[in-house]
Design a protein around this nucleic acid. Structure first.
Lengths: 226, 226
DNA sequence: GCATCGATGAAACAAGTGTTTTAATCGAAC
DNA sequence: GTTCGATTAAAACACTTGTTTCATCGATGC
């Protein structure tokens, strides 16, 4: 290895992750990345081929990291096993999943992942199909497994919609973060805000799930005026 | 007026709206805009001062248009009046609002608005505070008025959270559109998909609302195993 | 000790960027 | 018909972009 510091590729990746997440692909120049990594512009091309190649690696690394984080407490039991769990345990499991997602998406240390995800929705790249297949789809399938056990009479389509409704509520706070922070007048989400938010999402979703999973009728069931 | 066509500024704005929405601010050059508008690069600077100025005007025009669309069936009644409405009517009102938002955000003709909103969340500009104050905040306050009447015993904070949960579900389909379309294996949201989605969001939210608005207890109320 | 090869630094390259300048052109008012 | 102000077109400007080139450095193998 030449002069410089020991791991140029790693420092480049870290710098690129941060800058791509914060400013986006187009607004980030490889000179910015190189400067922040304490490396030369040519180093980027040497190790990653091109700016786009570097971006793809950043995306891959970031999603792999998150996947690892969210599956740290072991694999999800099979549907057969899960179906025997008491309702309380299923809700606790769902709560842990939601809390984990909140942590990954909204806790400052891992801000990059949410930002990159948002950017990929804004300007999809070749990496999106891979991310969907390897990360989003299994994640949703697992959540669906829990939801299906919580509402055994619901159709597969209904379960899918419920899963989307649950995930939507968490993603909302990440995707609308700039606007929501302005609305609540805070510089960032406080730990307390996130905790209360998580609790609300679970409560709201359990209620919604009970309502849509009840039957197939279209009209909302009258339940007595409040 | 010189040669060219009659309304250069309008054509520039239309071209810019389309391109900014589709490619984003950085990825769109004023030469692209000029070419698409059949105008010269200098015309943009003459009428809008700068690229950023043009972008701000695009944003303003787009949000004004949507604001006009969503308030077309008159102003929302006051909370006092709304409080006397039967539950069924309140739900119908909420449904119309959600359906209107779905139409604005996800119907092809008005795709630009959702895209620009998403981009503003990715890379907030000086226009965001204005958009939040003049568009998002009133929109949420109005929805909160309906929700508050549907759950009269809920605290203001709970109402806010419910409003966010409802809006979140609609925004989800817009913000995650590239990924969700890949997941469901469709090139675009079909009319039927959107209708079923809207119905689900309402049902799910009514259930969630009933659950969170019931009391202040933290635990979810046991309702008998299903 | 010398050649080799992976890795790096500095500079140059061609292309594209937003912006400005300058001149030409138009319609309408006098 | 001329003049004037508003609008457009073409070119140039200064700058940044991603990428490439080439010389150099450092360790490793013989």
């Amino acid at each position: 290895m030449a002069s410089g510091s020991p791991q140029t590729p790693g420092r480049l990746l870290a710098a690129a992750t941060d800058l791509f997440a914060r400013r986006g692909f187009h607004a980030t120049s490889i000179r910015d990345i190189a400067e922040r990594a304490g490396a030369n512009v040519a180093a980027g091309h040497y190790h990653y081929g091109s700016k786009r190649g570097l971006y793809v690696q950043v995306l891959r690394a970031q999603f792999a990291l998150v996947r690892e984080l969210t599956t740290r407490d072991g694999a999800l039991p099979s549907k057969r096993v899960l179906a025997r769990w008491p309702r309380r345990e299923l809700i606790a499991l769902l709560t842990r999943r939601v809390a984990g997602t909140v942590e990954v998406l909204l806790d400052p240390p891992s801000q990059a992942h949410g930002a990159l995800m948002l950017r990929e929705m804004c300007d999809p790249t070749d990496a999106l199909p891979i991310i969907v297949d390897e990360f989003i789809r299994p994640q949703m399938k697992e959540t669906a497994r829990i939801v299906a056990c919580l509402a055994p009479h619901a159709s597969a389509r209904t379960v899918e919609q419920v899963v989307r409704s649950i995930i939507a509520q968490v993603l909302f706070y990440r995707f609308t973060m700039p606007a929501t922070l302005l609305l609540i007048g805070a510089p960032r989400y406080s730990r307390r805000f996130l905790n209360e938010m998580t609790a609300h999402v679970i409560r709201f979703s359990i209620g919604g799930l009970a309502h849509v999973g009840r039957g197939r009728r279209r009209r909302d069931s009258p339940r007595g005026r409040r």
